[in-house]
Design a protein around this nucleic acid. Structure first.
Length: 855
RNA sequence: GGGCGCAUAGCUCAGUUGGCUAGAGCGCUUCCCUUACAAGGAAGAUGUCGGGGGUUCGAGUCCCUCUGCGCCCACCA
């Protein structure tokens, strides 16, 4: 217990309590607790290569209020933290910081020292290093950032148990990720396939459906003539990508389109290249689009892939993985003129080639009119800078229902049985699962990440046999097939005939983070811990990654554990600029969380965050933070005031009707806050608590302070003191999840231990005998007395010569029961009461003792 | 085109199975240095609850419809 300071302050309290909490282990998970006693949270691991912004502060605060509530309810809270240092952003940073490049073909060098630690000169040639070395450097670099993140989260007051920290590239994460993958593979849930895939030409990697986004780009329709091979005129198509004419394998129109029905089965020649292609019918062709007939290219968009597959068309790929037109013409493009035309664009980037093609079309007379500019949505990798192309490549997939009705149904059912906060977020899940059009592509042609843990046999001719991957034993994990050698082979057989070759790819970052519950719970590494925390209770996350993180986590858990990974999902909203636009990092205007902690205090920032309803986009508001700071300050002062009345005898109980009614009102608030928290509505719990707290300070304390000062005798004073202390104790605990620093300060003035380990208040501890109904008429009378003084523009201390109350019998009784308190608070000298049951609220006629006396 | 959400005081929002004489905070106005708090406190003004229709004794709340805004998905020759 601490002294009550003469002048309580919020300044500088954060470091003090952060240190105490750590030293006392206030937030340590008690791993002896059984599953029913545990509340487990699947904390989102923030990307360490970015910076923490208000969005993090916002949503992590929401989760923390829930965690603190559950802890006070007696749960052992499993609240780990993770760092997401796996993926493209980290890869880029490690390259730029150390002046290195990951190259899986390079052997591992123990004790490797990078050429630079920060700011390599511009002309520096990146040094190629092995993937294990690259991962080591990543861990070194991200460690610094992680420290900053950790400090910030501690400063925010997150009640995380930091002993359960993980990083998505650390050894355990790699082991879990690879083990889960191998089990998916063994059960047939993961498979490899060579197929057209969406491809980012800058990152030179395949990307998954979930990582796509549309961006509006300028384009133009070009009307192009294809000559009919029967010589009977031309077929005219509209295309935004004439560059792909060389990749054209057919024209297609709708089967019901009468204009083209006579042409189905006939052929045309592509302009410039003279390749003969058929005219086919397919229901995906749209009659009212362009000229109603489209060219099918391999591949311009995903519809082309569908047509190509369903119409059994040949492949004429012309765009390479580097985004350039390939050097040699595709099969079927073999006429001398055609080859000559193709050579004009070979090796060019796609947009340069497009200009060349348009020029050539114009010269040849195959183009009708001029291009008509339009703006249209184009598919991009969400982290990419250039439109995606479609190339054919071998990739790994995990089934996700995109190609199987039964699995899709099962996964939809999982989404149904999950409890969503707010509930309507479930639609986004269902919407996404229903719209899937392929399995989950998990392999990435990157160098940094969790390696796909397989090798392939190489036959006597040096050909790789992809259909019979060699898998490691789980006891070997994690492995890196680029440096580790499969069982039964020796190092010198790598990439040799009759030897083996390692899979060069890494897994998508979501393939690892989809296992965050298993990673945090130390799946298979610590079966006892896992049994105590899995399936977890809560997944908190942002709503924009339902389709990625949330969904993929459900998929992995469904396969591995035949269960949901958690029972509740809480989706937080966005932070908006004060002008209601989504707050973006790029704007650069953003205040950093640290500045705000310094300016308003962590509690005040938390208050702002906790005021936002679950799942609702919320404007950034320093005004709200000021209000939060006022609340924390008020708590200090009110606590000091109440405790200053002294400690009543241990066996004393409240007796005054006003005291009992006040306690009953606090009990009602406890019920409301408890119910709200059980429904994950932390904002409602705060709002109800706050309203009661301000009423307690502004009305109740004013009413009873005279009696508490012992001006009316010991019995009344003791009753007031006991009641005030009960109420204060409950209010401090009700506010603890929101303003943990201020509540901890005031709690320790008079209690042992941390408020954050104290038990959540209950109705029972507050007694259950008070009549809340008397509070309204009492408050009304006090308000009217105050109003009359305000209207008379005089001090609230001005004595009231006569307060004449007209009210119903019940209200008169209520007011009389508080006559002592009202006399004190209103400085009333005389009372008169008139019973009038027609009066729905009391009316007070106030005669101020200064009435008639000139100033 | 499909789905979801939002629309209540100048601003940000609450209003939980229909009972409201519609609330809070901020901002604004007035007053008070009252010994917990002047980085306080007391009090005041402000609304055709987006429009229209319906159900009901009663609708901000339920149903239909329209309008505007936002998000997700699909389409994107």
């Amino acid at each position: 217990m601490a002294e009550i300071p003469e002048k309580p302050t919020l300044d500088g309290i954060e470091p003090l309590w952060i240190e105490s909490w750590e030293a006392e282990g206030v937030y340590r998970f008690d791993r002896t607790a059984g599953r029913e006693q545990v509340y487990a949270i699947d904390t989102p691991p923030p990307t360490v290569s970015g910076s923490l912004h208000m969005g993090h502060v916002f949503s992590y605060t929401h989760t923390d209020t829930i965690a603190r509530y559950q802890r006070m309810r007696g749960k052992s809270v499993f609240y780990p933290m993770g760092w997401d240092d796996n993926g493209l952003p980290t890869e880029r940073r490690v390259q730029n910081f150390f002046g290195v490049r990951c190259d899986p073909s390079v052997p591992y060098q123990p004790g490797f020292q990078p050429p630079f630690r920060g700011d390599p000169p511009k002309d520096h040639q990146a040094v190629s290093i092995s993937r294990p070395n690259f991962i080591e450097l990543c861990e070194e670099l991200t460690h610094q950032d992680e420290k900053i993140f950790e400090d910030l989260f501690r400063r925010l007051g997150l009640s995380v148990d930091w002993t359960y920290l993980y990083a998505t590239i650390d050894e355990r994460s790699r082991r879990v990720s690879q083990r889960a993958f191998l089990r998916n593979l063994a059960r047939g849930e993961a498979y490899t396939q060579e197929a057209p895939t969406l491809w980012d030409v800058d990152f030179k990697t395949a990307v998954a459906q979930a990582e796509l986004e549309d961006r509006e780009r300028p384009g133009a329709y070009h009307q192009v003539k294809f000559a009919r091979t029967d010589g009977d005129g031309d077929v005219i198509i509209d295309t935004t990508r004439p560059v792909l004419i060389a990749a054209c394998v057919a024209l297609v129109a709708h089967p019901d389109d009468e204009r083209y029905q006579p042409l189905f089965g006939s052929t045309v020649r592509t302009p410039l290249y003279g390749v003969e292609v058929p005219i086919l019918a397919h229901p995906l062709a749209q009659i009212d689009k362009g000229t109603g007939i489209a060219m099918i290219c391999t591949f311009g968009d995903v519809t082309d892939v569908t047509w190509w597959r369903e119409l059994n068309l040949p492949t004429r790929a012309i765009i390479g993985r580097d985004g350039r037109i390939v050097a040699t013409p595709p099969s079927g493009l073999d006429s001398p003129d055609g080859v000559a035309a193709f050579e004009q664009i070979a090796g060019l980037y796609v947009n340069q080639a497009q200009n060349k093609v348009v020029e050539a079309l114009r010269e040849s007379g195959a183009m009708i009119g001029e291009p008509r500019p339009i703006t249209h949505p184009v598919k991009f990798f969400e982290k990419g800078d250039r439109p995606l192309e479609i190339v054919t490549s071998r990739q790994w997939y995990i089934r996700n229902g995109g190609r199987g009705a039964e699995l899709r149904r099962d996964l939809l059912a999982r989404g149904e049985s999950l409890t969503w906060h707010p509930d309507h977020m479930r639609h986004r899940y269902a919407n996404w699962v229903e719209g899937l059009n392929g399995d989950w592509l998990i392999s990435r042609q990157r160098y940094f990440g969790v390696p796909i843990p397989v090798w392939y046999p190489v036959d006597a001719h040096g050909e790789t046999d992809y259909d019979r991957p060699i898998v490691p034993d789980e006891s070997m994990l994690p492995i890196d097939p680029s440096t580790d050698v499969p069982p039964g082979y020796s190092t010198d057989q790598r990439d040799q005939p009759n030897g083996f070759t390692g899979d060069p790819d890494v897994m998508d970052t979501w393939a690892t983070s989809s296992l965050s519950p298993q990673i945090a719970a130390q799946w298979e590494d610590d079966a006892d811990l896992f049994a105590r925390v899995f399936p977890m209770d809560l997944r908190p996350q942002a709503h924009d990654i339902i389709r990625t993180w949330l969904f993929s986590t459900v998929v992995r858990s469904h396969f591995e554990h035949d269960s949901l990974p958690w029972t509740n999902a809480a989706l937080s909203g966005w932070i908006l600029d004060p002008d209601r636009k989504k707050m973006s990092k790029s704007k650069g205007n953003v205040v950093t969380p640290l500045d705000l902690f310094d300016k308003f205090g962590s509690d005040a920032v938390r208050y702002w965050a906790a005021s936002a309803r679950p799942g609702v986009d919320t404007a950034f508001s320093e005004e709200q933070m000021k209000v939060g700071r006022k609340l924390a300050t008020k708590l200090l002062n009110a606590s000091k005031f109440v405790l200053g009345f002294g400690e009543p005898p241990a066996d004393a109980t409240p007796t005054s009707p006003v005291d009992l009614a006040m306690l009953a009102r606090i009990a009602d608030t406890v019920d409301e806050a408890t119910r709200a928290f059980d429904e994950y509505d932390y904002a409602r719990a705060l709002e109800r608590t706050e309203a009661t707290f301000w009423w307690f300070c502004d009305d109740h304390l004013e009413l009873v302070k005279g009696r508490a000062y012992n001006v009316h005798g010991t019995e009344g004073a003791v009753s007031a003191q006991v009641a005030l202390r009960s109420a204060l104790s409950a209010l401090q605990r009700l506010l603890a999840p929101f303003i943990p620093f201020a509540t901890e300060s005031v709690w320790r003035w008079w209690q042992n231990g941390s408020v954050h380990r104290a038990s959540w208040p209950t109705r029972a501890e507050l007694g259950n005998t008070g009549d809340v109904a008397i509070l309204d008429p009492i408050g009304e009378v006090l308000a009217q007395i105050r109003r009359s003084k305000t209207e008379a523009k005089t001090s609230q201390k001005t004595p009231v010569a006569l307060a004449s109350v007209r009210a119903s019998a019940a209200h008169v009784a209520a007011v009389e029961s508080a006559r002592v308190e009202l006399t004190d608070a209103g400085s009333v000298e005389n009372w008169a009461f008139t019973i009038d049951d027609a009066q729905s609220t009391p009316v007070v006629e106030v005669t101020l003792s200064t009435d008639g006396t000139p100033d």
